[in-house]
Amino acid sequence: MVFLKINNLKVYYPIRGGFFRRVVDHVKAVDDISFELKQGETYGLVGESGCGKTTTGRSIIGLTKSTAGEIIFEDKDLTKLSRKDYHNYRRDIQMIFQDPYSSLNPRKRVLDIVAEPLRNFEKLTIAEERQKVQFYIEKVGLSPEDVYKYPHEFSGGQRQRIGIARALTLNPKLIIADEPVSALDVSVQAQVLNFMQDIQKEFNLTYLFISHDLGIIQHMCDRIGIMYRGQFVEEGAAEDIYTNPQHIYTKRLISAIPDINPKNRDKQVEFRKKVNEEYKNSYDKYFNAEGKVYKLKQISNTHSVALP
């Protein structure tokens, strides 16, 4: 059984203009991508801002309608399900949002925020519900009394943990984490990431981890897909990508990861120079006449690159 398979997904946003707000053009936010997630792994989706990562995640969870393509989750194509059937898959796929400030309703107590999915799917008594909420709130490292507080009484990292607790209550199989730490202080980032890895084992979760930061992806992911303008330029096991990058765009992203070890600094500057030179000299080799990348080609069992 395939866990999650994306086939030729396209998401085009219409651009309206002129008289009667006619559709004059499209933003091809996601333009024909395919990839697969195995249960239990963490798949990283990387790319610069605006390349379509969020749109990919949102269309998998159904927040954005896909223009074409298939999203196959446990052998069912989610794009073809009716609203009612889709409701049953809600429990299995959950999302952690990028901005911990806007993703929690400021007017609701933590108890009501975390209990929202339970109230939609399960009939619990008030006491049972509170117990369950407190269980998950403790799991994410907050204290049981915190359920009576409002979101503004917490720090960004704590809020993100509340968001995670809310996503966990329905026992999902897949969690889409859209830049879950990019709004947090660097000091808190590692904490939240490690914590996400801990609960992954405990709850047997599969992550689709979205980030623009290859450094964080390196820390988290088993396999990685690199996106550029709505398309994949390279895909492979984490090792393939970091030790044997093939596409110039991947190389540029890797050369931009800051290295804290001062001994390697010279080496990195050297590497960066080399990559930049290659980018200038052999641009045509990697991008076609429209500035788009080529189709993915498999170069090993685990590794594919977009080369002509």
Binding site: G62, L63, F97, S103, L104, N105, P106, E116, N120, R166
Partner: peptide, 26 residues
């Protein structure tokens, strides 16, 4: 456009409930 509305949708809350319980109080 705020993510708490998106979150409610992904949590399976019906639209009328999101309107009354989430958006209206704000």
């Amino acid at each position: 456009e705020l993510d708490y509305v998106n979150a409610s949708k992904t949590l399976g809350t019906p639209d009328w409930k999101i309107i009354i319980r989430e958006v209206l109080p704000n």
